[in-house]
Design a protein around this nucleic acid. Sequence first.
DNA 1: CTGAAAGCGCTTACAG
DNA 2: CTGAAAGCGCTTACAG
Lengths: 321, 321
Amino acid sequence: MKTTIADVAGLAGVAKSTVSRYLNGGYVSDETRKKIDQVIKDTKYEPNTFAQSLKAKKTNLVGVVIPRLNSYSASLTLKGIDEKLRGEGYQLLISNTDQSIDREIESLYSFANQKVAGIILMATQITKEHLMAIREIEVPILSIGQEHQGVASLVYNDEEAGYDLAQYVLGCGHRRMIYVGVSEADVAVGKNRKRGFYRALEEAEDVEVDFYETDFSMKSAYRLFDSLNLEGKTLIACATDNIALGMMKALGERGISIPGDISITGFGDYEVADIMGLTTMHYPYEEAGQLAAQTVLYPEAARVSPPKSQIIFRKSVDILK
Amino acid sequence: MKTTIADVAGLAGVAKSTVSRYLNGGYVSDETRKKIDQVIKDTKYEPNTFAQSLKAKKTNLVGVVIPRLNSYSASLTLKGIDEKLRGEGYQLLISNTDQSIDREIESLYSFANQKVAGIILMATQITKEHLMAIREIEVPILSIGQEHQGVASLVYNDEEAGYDLAQYVLGCGHRRMIYVGVSEADVAVGKNRKRGFYRALEEAEDVEVDFYETDFSMKSAYRLFDSLNLEGKTLIACATDNIALGMMKALGERGISIPGDISITGFGDYEVADIMGLTTMHYPYEEAGQLAAQTVLYPEAARVSPPKSQIIFRKSVDILK
DNA sequence: CTGAAAGCGCTTACAG
DNA sequence: CTGAAAGCGCTTACAG
C-alpha cells in the first residue's frame, strides 16, 4: 500500500497539516521535524503529485511545444532544457506539432489545462492565434527563436550572425554569390539572417548576389540546385546547414568540387557539418535550451539572448585573395 | 473562473455523478445526454486532470526514458512514439538519462510515482536494478532495443541485420575485413549485430576479419582510426553509422578514397548517410516508435518486432568481382 | 437511468 | 508552533 500523508502523520504522532507544513517549508519545531524526518525516511513516503496539484493548482511540469522532434537544433535545445529542468526538479512534457500551426495552438491550451508551470514555445512564426492563446492561458511562456511584442522570448542574434558570416566571406574575396534562404514568414531564419548578410554586402563594393528561396529540408535544397544559375558565382551561402548539405550532395554528384569550383556556407553547425567540412555559423542550441528553462521558471527580462554565434572555419570556403 | 463538473451539473439540472457518468461513457438517457452536451459546449468545460487522476489513479501520460536526446535514432523513435500517443489521447513525458544507469532507474520510479499509464524504456542494458524497479512499480513497461526475460520488449532483429549485411558484402567479393563494434554489454548493437555478421562470414570460405571496439561517438571512431591495421583489408564494417562517419572523416583527411581504396558500411541509415553515400542497414525507427506506443498502451505479445531492416545500397562498397 | 454521499491525498486559512 | 476542518474537482459504489 502506498503511504499517504495521513500514514506519516499517524506514525509521527502529529497532524496531517503539520506534515504538510514540514513538506512545504512552513513552521515546524525541531523536535517534530526530526520525528517526521525519520518516518518519511522509513516509509519512503512520496507525496501524491495529483493531490498536490489539485490544491495548489500547479505542477512541476514544463511543456515544450516543438515543430519537429527529429532535427538537430530541436533535439539539442531539448537536451539543454531537460538538463536545467531536471536540476530544478521539473519534468519535461513534450508536444511535437509536426510544423502544424493549429497543433501549436492546441498544445498551448492543452498544456494550460494540465497546469504546467511554464511553456517553452519553439514556434516557426507567431500568429494572432498564438497571441490570443498566450494571453488567455495565463501560463508563463517563453518563445525560442521567434520574437514578438508582448511575449517573452529568447532569440538568437540572427541578424548579427548573418552579418558576421558575410563579412568573413567578403574578407575571403568573394564578390559574386548566391544566397539560398527560406520564407520571410520565419522572421529569425528567413528574414533576420538574410538581412544581416545583405547588410554586410551593401557595405562592400562591387558585390552581386542572387536570391533563391527553399524550405528547411535537405531534399528541397537538393532539388532546387538545378534551377540555380551558377554562372560566374564563387559562393553559395545557405540559410541553414541542411540546405547547404542538400546543395553539397548535388554538387558532389555533378563532380563540382568544393571549394575548388565553388564555395559554400551554412548556418547551424549541425553534427554533420564537421565531417562534411562545411564552414558554418555555430549556434549554441544546448546553452539556449538551458537558458530558456531558467527563464521560463524564473522570469527576469522579457527578452534574453543566448551566447553569440560563432563562425566555425572549415574547408568549404575558398580564399580567393 | 474555470468551470467545474459541479457547474455543468448545475446548469444542466442534473447531479455531478450523472455528468461524470456521461464523461466516462456510463448510462445516461438520451435526453440528459443532450442537455449535458449543450452545457459542455457552451461552457467549454474541460475536466481537471488532477482530480481525475487522484481518483482514478492513472493518467494519460506515457513516460519515455531515453539515454540521449540528440541522436538520430532516439529522436526518430520519439517522433513515432509521439505520433501514436497523440492519436490515442496520451501525452509524452520524457526523461533524458544522459547514458546514466542510475538515472534510468530513478526515472522509472519517478514515472511510476506520477502514475504514468505506461513506460517506454530505451535502455542501453538491463541490469538487476532495472529488473527490480520494473517489478516493483507495477506500470506497464516496454523495452525498446534491449531484450530480457520477463520484460516486454520491442527488438530489432540485429542478428539478422548483421547477417544480411555480411552476406551482401561477401557477395561483393570482400574477404579481408575489419569489424568495428561496441561493447557486448549492449546486447543488441554490441553482441547481436556482430554475431550475425560473423555467422555469415563463417559460412563463407577464406575470410579474415579483425575486430576493434569503440563507443557510440563519431569522435571515438575517428580517433580509433590510427590504430587500425588496414594492411590487405578491403572493407571496414562499422556497427553504427556514427562509427562509419568517424572513420570516413579520418579516411577523407588521409586522402584514402571510398570505395576505391577501401569500402565501408554502417548500421542505422542516419540522415547523413545519404549525402555521404554510405551503404548501410536501414532501421525503421519511426515505425518502431509507433509500434512501441501501441504495445505499451495495449499489450498483446511480450515480444514484438518492427519491420525487417533493409540494406540501403549506396556507393561506399566496392564491387570486387 | 439518476442522485446523495463518501472519499482520493493533499493544502490552507483559522483558531488556539 | 500545532491541529481540526473545509475544500480542491473528480469518481465510485450504493440505493432507489
